[in-house]
């Protein structure tokens, strides 16, 4: 089943189109990366899913049912523009947000204590929010987003402003939560976290979906027949190439005694190429270069 399915949703503002009619499916249990340059319509889409704004046309379903306001109890959303009440105490603030998500006071306190203990935040319970560092505030926001154990979690740029240690902490929690059965939608510019985390992606540009599918499918479909051969030699060796194979470059590597040849072929597969080239040199490594999500992103957007 799809956690989220949108049918032809669009949104137009006074002077621009934020979203062209969009069909999108977020499979249950996936980590779904929502990618796109600034102004592509990601935040508009996320706000529509969260029912903060309504689409001009089309509809959204949540686990097969038309979404309505009671579903907000089953969604956790960490918006890109996020903050906390500066004058409130950390504990008080967390309790407040948890109760608004429908948790009872007791349940909220119990779960919050569990999280605060886990991340060593207990001493911060009675401190004011304005005393928190940015990273610390991000952690509190993460906790209050996931505390009511929603079926669907939506994170808009969850790693912005986090150091690598805390980013890893959050990432690990996301993976744990996913393992427990939640579906995660992730909007981010950090392509390495997309490759690390996401099972599916959709790429938006100028309010239109230009790409979607599983990460593997997409990377496979963007294969362009590039191969790389590393071999031991002080100078590049001229290689004799089979038919329909071209040499893009053949250079000495920065490392002494190693050369790298880049080869292009749409017709032959890797074993056919390696069997032709391996006898000619002292091979260290041979690999097919599958474009990274970053390359695919830039290429697709520039199209």
């Amino acid at each position: 089943m799809n956690a989220i399915q949108s049918f032809g949703i669009d949104k137009q503002y006074e002077n621009h189109v934020a979203l062209h009619p969009l069909d999108l499916s977020v499979p249950e249990g996936s980590v779904f990366g929502l990618l796109g340059p600034n102004g592509a319509g990601k935040t508009t889409l996320l706000r529509i899913i969260n029912q903060i704004i309504s689409p001009d046309n089309g509809s959204v379903s949540f686990y097969g049912q038309k979404i309505d306001s009671s579903d907000s109890r089953h969604i956790g959303y960490l918006p890109e523009e996020r903050g906390l009440y500066k004058k409130m105490k950390v504990g008080e603030q967390s309790m407040y947000l948890a109760q608004l998500k429908g948790l009872s006071r007791n349940e909220a306190r119990k779960r919050l204590h569990w999280w605060f203990k886990k991340w060593g935040l207990e001493t911060w319970w009675d401190k004011k929010v304005e005393e928190l560092s940015k990273g610390m505030a991000q952690k509190i926001q993460f906790i209050t987003t996931v505390l009511h154990e929603p079926k669907l979690l939506i994170f808009d740029e969850p790693f912005s402003g986090l150091d690598p240690v805390n980013a890893a902490l959050i990432r690990d929690e996301m993976l744990r939560i996913r393992k427990e059965g939640a579906t995660i939608v992730l909007s981010t510019h950090r392509m390495e976290s997309v490759e690390e985390l996401c099972s599916h992606i959709a790429l938006l540009n100028h309010g239109e979906k230009i790409l979607d599918g599983t990460v593997n499918e997409i990377r496979e479909s963007h294969r362009n027949g590039n191969f790389r051969l590393s071999y031991r030699s002080n100078e590049p060796i001229t290689l004799s190439l089979p038919n329909q194979v071209e040499m893009s470059q053949n250079l000495r590597d920065f490392n002494k005694g190693i050369c790298i040849a880049e080869i292009q072929s749409m017709k032959l597969n890797s074993s056919e190429i390696i069997s032709a080239l391996a006898p000619q040199v002292d091979t260290i490594r041979f690999e097919e270069i599958i474009p990274s999500m970053n390359d695919i992103f830039i290429k697709s957007v520039e199209k």
């Binding site: 903060i52 959303y77 523009e81 996020r82 903050g83 906390l84 009440y85 608004l100």
Partner: peptide
């Protein structure tokens, strides 16, 4: 303080 969008996801 940017709390408002967090709030209106709940209410």
């Amino acid at each position: 303080s940017r709390i408002v969008e967090v709030m209106i996801t709940s209410v």
